[in-house]
Measured scan of single mutants.
Amino acid sequence: MDVCVRLALWLLWGLLLHQGQSLSHSHSEKATGTSSGANSEESTAAEFCRIDKPLCHSEDEKLSFEAVRNIHKLMDDDANGDVDVEESDEFLREDLNYHDPTVKHSTFHGEDKLISVEDLWKAWKSSEVYNWTVDEVVQWLITYVELPQYEETFRKLQLSGHAMPRLAVTNTTMTGTVLKMTDRSHRQKLQLKALDTVLFGPPLLTRHNHLKDFMLVVSIVIGVGGCWFAYIQNRYSKEHMKKMMKDLEGLHRAEQSLHDLQERLHKAQEEHRTVEVEKVHLEKKLRDEINLAKQEAQRLKELREGTENERSRQKYAEEELEQVREALRKAEKELESHSSWYAPEALQKWLQLTHEVEVQYYNIKKQNAEKQLLVAKEGAEKIKKKRNTLFGTFHVAHSSSLDDVDHKILTAKQALSEVTAALRERLHRWQQIEILCGFQIVNNPGIHSLVAALNIDPSWMGSTRPNPAHFIMTDDVDDMDEEIVSPLSMQSPSLQSSVRQRLTEPQHGLGS
Rank of each mutant, 00 (worst) to 15 (best):
L63K: 04
L63G: 00
L63Q: 11
L63R: 00
L63W: 00
L63S: 00
L63C: 00
S64V: 10
S64N: 05
S64D: 13
S64K: 15
F65E: 11
F65N: 01
F65A: 13
F65K: 06
F65C: 10
F65S: 07
F65T: 13
F65H: 06
E66W: 06
E66F: 07
E66M: 01
E66C: 10
E66P: 00
A67N: 08
A67V: 02
A67Y: 06
A67S: 06
A67T: 04
A67E: 02
A67M: 12
V68F: 13
V68C: 11
V68P: 02
V68I: 10
V68G: 06
V68L: 08
V68Q: 02
R69C: 03
R69T: 14
N70S: 04
I71W: 12
I71P: 11
I71V: 02
I71R: 02
I71S: 01
H72M: 10
H72R: 08
H72G: 12
H72C: 11
H72D: 00
H72S: 07
K73N: 00
K73A: 04
K73M: 06
K73S: 06
K73P: 10
K73E: 02
K73D: 04
K73L: 06
L74Y: 11
L74Q: 00
L74P: 03
L74N: 08
L74R: 04
M75H: 14
M75D: 10
M75P: 12
M75G: 09
D76M: 15
D76L: 13
D76F: 11
D77P: 10
D77C: 06
D77G: 05
D77A: 03
D77Y: 03
D77L: 12
D77N: 00
D77H: 08
D78V: 06
D78E: 07
D78G: 13
D78M: 11
D78P: 13
D78R: 15
D78N: 02
D78T: 15
A79D: 01
A79S: 03
A79W: 08
A79K: 12
A79H: 05
A79G: 02
A79T: 05
A79I: 04
N80K: 04
N80A: 10
N80T: 03
N80L: 11
N80V: 10
G81W: 12
G81V: 09
G81N: 13
G81K: 14
G81H: 15
G81F: 13
G81Q: 12
G81D: 11
D82C: 14
D82M: 10
D82V: 07
D82L: 07
D82F: 00
D82R: 14
D82A: 14
D82H: 03
D82Q: 12
D82K: 15
D82N: 09
V83W: 12
V83P: 15
V83E: 14
V83S: 13
D84E: 08
D84S: 06
D84M: 15
D84H: 11
D84P: 15
D84I: 15
D84W: 13
D84N: 05
V85N: 14
V85C: 11
V85I: 14
V85H: 12
V85K: 14
V85Q: 01
V85W: 04
V85R: 04
V85E: 02
E86M: 15
E86V: 05
E86F: 11
E86R: 06
E87V: 09
E87G: 11
E87C: 12
E87K: 10
E87T: 12
S88N: 12
S88P: 09
S88F: 02
S88H: 07
S88Q: 14
S88M: 07
D89C: 04
D89L: 05
D89V: 13
D89G: 03
D89M: 06
D89Y: 03
D89W: 02
D89F: 03
E90L: 00
E90W: 01
E90S: 02
E90P: 08
E90Y: 09
E90N: 08
E90H: 07
E90D: 00
F91W: 01
F91S: 09
F91I: 06
F91G: 14
F91H: 12
L92M: 06
L92S: 10
R93Y: 07
R93H: 12
R93D: 14
R93S: 11
R93C: 14
R93M: 02
E94V: 01
E94I: 08
E94G: 08
E94P: 08
D95L: 12
D95H: 01
D95C: 06
D95R: 07
D95V: 03
D95P: 15
D95Q: 02
L96C: 04
L96T: 15
L96R: 08
L96I: 08
L96P: 09
L96Y: 14
L96W: 05
L96N: 06
N97A: 02
N97P: 10
N97M: 08
Y98C: 04
Y98E: 02
Y98N: 06
Y98F: 00
Y98Q: 13
Y98L: 01
Y98K: 13
Y98W: 03
